[in-house]
Design a protein around this nucleic acid. Structure first.
Lengths: 151, 151
DNA sequence: ATAGCAAATGCGTTTCATTCGCAATAAAAT
DNA sequence: ATTTTATTGCGAATGAAACGCATTTGCTAT
């Protein structure tokens, strides 16, 4: 079996034990175009015939997040934590208030701003989190629908 | 009693009943330089000798938030919702990862960016949420301390 | 004012995401 | 192969927030 590349090996290299469950979880996240909740991962594994306990999914995503293999997102509008495969690219999110789909934004408009802010406040800036809310093209027509809160 | 200005009257004008509890809660938030959790408000009221049920605090901040008199913040690092008096100014937050103090930032670097993004994605942009993380001047020296997660 | 009504409150209970304890199991180290 | 150590399963615990319902309080029209 190939041990020098792939997701399973990323886990090994991280210092975590390379278990079946963690491998599958990371693969599921890698394939998903949307961040997923622990429960969604759990259900997906069930569909794929992989028996796993929900606690294990929680513990797996937590350890994978600690090792930076996945990223945990807290995007309001749901009280559930979302997890996504860490593609090692700094990105932001555009959340559709209609269908709740999450779209990643590659461009970061804040690079320069952080420097200005550091100079102004004398803070040591570590990073930032930006989420933008709106309605996607498909949902624009229905934008009058219940505007779910976001702030 | 003055009925044409002040916090109590803001509540009345919002369509909510002007109750003692809601008035006190809004006053507490107005005086606080930090956003507060429901429980902090509850405790503060206790200190001030005002008997109130925690459920009531939750319901009060919820209704006040609905009427836009207070703003609910979900800043990760704690799973508790923070509430702040709505000073009707669009603002962002600078969270110190050391002492967890929250400082408001008046300048918003995203005004132009939203337009570009709308043009690029064909989304109807409603708003955004930006939180910046770092270490305040006091905490910089200890920046090596356990860096609490923020993403 | 005051009676009548809808909204707000208290208190206890419930929900729901997430975490934890502990015994059983599987992965890495020796 | 055997020991060591991390991971898993299961059920129970936690903790923030929501809820049901009986009671009380603020408004509003008389």
């Amino acid at each position: 079996m190939d041990k020098s590349s792939g997701i399973a090996n990323d886990i090994g290299r991280s210092g975590l034990k390379r278990t079946k469950h963690r491998t599958v979880i990371l693969e599921i996240l890698e394939k998903s175009d949307q961040p997923m909740t622990a429960e969604q991962i759990f259900l997906k594994m069930g569909q794929e015939g992989i028996a796993v306990s929900l606690s294990t999914v929680y513990r797996a995503v937590e350890s994978l997040a600690q090792k930076k293999l996945v990223t945990a997102l807290e995007i309001s509008g749901s009280n559930k934590t979302l997890f996504e495969y860490n593609r090692k690219i700094h990105r932001h999110y555009l959340v559709c208030l209609g269908c709740r789909k999450i779209r990643a934004i590659a461009h970061c408009p804040l690079k320069d701003y952080e420097e200005d802010l550091a100079a102004e406040t004398d803070y040591l800036i570590s990073g930032h989190k930006l989420v933008i809310y709106g309605y996607c093209p498909d949902c624009r027509k229905n934008a009058a629908m219940t505007p779910k809160e976001w702030s």
